[in-house]
Design a protein around this nucleic acid. Structure first.
Lengths: 130, 130
DNA sequence: CTTGACCTTCCCGTGGCTGGAAGCCCTATC
DNA sequence: GATAGGGCTTCCAGCCACGGGAAGGTCAAG
């Protein structure tokens, strides 16, 4: 199938699929007209990539996961380690955002939000109310 | 003071300070030798920027916040609106991460992580267990 | 035979910096 | 006065993961 069809099937933009080829994540065949020809397997791998990306795995993690997926002799421990590390990163990010969110919410809550210039948000950012 | 000192005071790398000047967030004076000369006010504004950035405000939001900070006739409502919108974005991001995190944690939990090739994580990414 | 949808490559831009090269300036020491 | 070092300057390139758009080739339908 052509890139348009596989794009529709996987939900990935054609641009992204071309990019994935460029960086060597996939290697679709080419027709005599120069068009990319995607096999079902290609489409399957792209769907795999789409899911991995949507879970926040980086491109390099996706590359590793794809390689493990293709390797029938893999150890699931290797997959789990990648996923575990990513999970830790996600947890760290969530924690960071929650902390930042709390500060932000405090500031927003303290601000009257009227037409007067007094503003605890600006004071906070200016370091006046630590 | 020179860029090194203001960098140390604000915790911002000198590179970042130069970048902020380049995009017009600050306008430090210049000495006869071409060196940037930062006033206390410059340093103060940079500290303001550092805090705003650490709360996740984008550069453009920081620009708006700085302008409001400088405007003594501002309405705190304008500040609050920016902060409120950013808070909503942060909440959205946290929600997105939490959802993703849940899926990820399920997969990690389901995987034995031993030397056998069977792997629920890969199966999940391949769309086999939806 | 033309239209229009699809495909190709190529290059630039995004945000918010960071690294590095090449070169000027300033102070301290010999 | 020469030199060594640190700090400062500009400029260029790169990061991640694409997205936009131009210029042009290809294909099926009318």
């Amino acid at each position: 199938m052509n890139i348009g069809e596989v794009a529709e099937r996987t939900g990935l933009p054609a641009k992204t699929i071309r990019y994935y080829e460029e960086i060597g994540l996939i290697r679709p065949a080419r027709g005599p007209n120069g068009y990319r020809r995607f096999s079902d397997r290609d489409a399957h791998n792209l769907a795999f990539l789409a899911r991995a990306r949507s879970l926040g795995f980086t491109i390099e993690e996706c590359r590793a996961l794809l390689a493990l997926y293709a390797d029938k002799g893999r150890a699931s421990a290797d997959v789990k380690r990648i996923a575990r590390e990513h999970l830790d990163q996600v947890d760290a990010k969530i924690a960071e955002l929650r902390e930042l969110r709390a500060t932000l919410a405090d500031l927003v809550h303290a601000c009257a939000g009227d037409d007067r210039p007094d503003c605890p948000i600006l004071n906070g950012l200016a370091g006046k109310a630590e």
